[in-house]
Write a protein that binds this DNA or RNA. Structure first.
Lengths: 135, 135
DNA sequence: ATTCTATGCTATTGACTATAGCATAGAATC
DNA sequence: GATTCTATGCTATAGTCAATAGCATAGAAT
């Protein structure tokens, strides 16, 4: 059986991303967090006081789609919202969130390790290189 | 502002796939078809008489999720279902579908071209190489 | 003072995936 | 030959995430 999609980057990219997504989300299993929320947490940690619009720009998430993410993280007590510039709200990781971050980073590393193991370390490195060029 | 996700393949992959997906789907605009259906059409064309389970295995789509795709393509008159082995149904591209396929291939090539233009031809080639290794 | 821009938010829709379960057609086994 | 096993097609449902349109407000710019 022939797969005519092999040389189509568009399809291969989506399919490969599916594998990566499932691997990463599986690694977050115990934390009950999914990759968008995890990504947002890491961005806030690295940029205290950032606005949610700015997070969205960095992660290519639209403003309207940021709302439920931030609400969820706030409900869990992982972030705090303080007045920012203009109508913007400065977001920081709460003490409770700080206490959780090591687990999140560990799960992230675990997911990457499984991914690397799945596709081979050399291919993993090459993939990262290409993706960084695109970013 | 620092992006802490740069070295995480999992996130970068998902994000990059989003770009690829939007580019490809945009190229299919006039045909009113989305990438999963387009991919299924190409697989059927390349493997006449294939069962829908086999298509799903090739494209990493679950059996249950194949059902609406095949129904949609059948409703549009692009495929035909004939008895196959066991309970399986042999699927082929209908004459009407055959007449449409050139447009689909053209749209696919267009999408790939836009993708290549967007990320640069050299990066495109490198990306394809890595993705094929993973597949 | 008025216009412009950015931000946060609501509401809704759509695309795709994941899970669990059911019924049937052959193949395999005893 | 009867029974078990496996593969297939299908239903139903829920969940995840993205896309679109629109609203109100806080400052900046003019």
């Amino acid at each position: 059986m022939r797969n005519p999609l092999e040389e189509l980057v568009g399809f291969q990219l989506v399919r490969t991303a599916g594998i990566g997504l499932r691997t990463v989300n599986a690694a977050y299993g115990d934390l009950a967090i999914r990759h968008p929320d995890a990504a947002v947490m890491m961005v806030i940690e690295a940029n205290p006081g950032i606005s949610q619009s700015a997070i969205g720009r960095m992660l290519k998430i639209q403003r309207s789609n940021m709302v439920p993410i931030i609400s969820r993280l706030s409900d869990r007590g992982w972030i705090e919202r303080n007045p920012g510039r203009g109508k913007a709200i400065g977001i920081t990781v709460s003490p409770q969130g700080q206490a959780m971050m090591p687990q999140l980073h560990a799960a992230s590393r675990e997911g990457e390790a499984r991914l690397a193991a799945g596709i081979g370390p050399d291919v993993y490195a090459q993939l990262l290189e290409v993706l960084r060029k695109i970013a």
